[in-house]
Amino acid sequence: MKRRTLLRGATALGAAGLAAGAAPHTAAAAPSPRDDGAPFRVHVVLFDGVEELDLSAPYEVLAASDYFTDRSVDVRYVALDGPRTVRAAFGTTLRVDHAWAPEQADLLVVPGGGYARRDDPGVWAEIRRGALPRALAEAPRPGLTISALCTGVMLLSAAGLTRGRPCTTHHRARQDLEEQGGLLKNARVVDDGDLVTAGGVTSGLDLALWLARRELGVDTALGLEAMLEYEARGTVWTARPRPA
Results as ranks from 00 to 15, higher is better:
103 E>L: 01
131 A>Y: 02
80 L>Q: 07
66 D>L: 07
75 V>Q: 04
138 E>P: 12
122 G>T: 10
129 R>N: 07
124 W>F: 05
125 A>K: 07
122 G>M: 12
105 A>T: 09
72 S>T: 12
132 L>Q: 06
136 L>F: 08
98 H>T: 14
114 G>F: 00
69 T>S: 13
123 V>M: 02
78 V>L: 03
115 Y>S: 06
124 W>D: 03
113 G>N: 11
106 D>Y: 12
58 P>T: 11
93 T>F: 01
123 V>P: 00
137 A>E: 01
133 P>Q: 02
123 V>S: 01
70 D>W: 05
102 P>Q: 08
76 R>H: 13
137 A>T: 02
65 S>Q: 01
62 L>A: 14
103 E>N: 03
124 W>Y: 05
134 R>L: 10
113 G>H: 08
137 A>P: 12
72 S>L: 12
92 T>V: 15
114 G>A: 05
82 G>D: 11
131 A>L: 06
141 R>F: 04
71 R>N: 06
120 D>S: 08
67 Y>D: 14
83 P>A: 12
105 A>C: 14
139 A>N: 04
96 V>M: 02
129 R>K: 04
131 A>N: 07
110 V>G: 04
131 A>K: 00
95 R>D: 15
92 T>H: 09
91 G>Y: 00
122 G>Y: 10
123 V>Q: 02
124 W>N: 05
76 R>A: 14
84 R>D: 11
95 R>W: 09
58 P>A: 13
66 D>N: 14
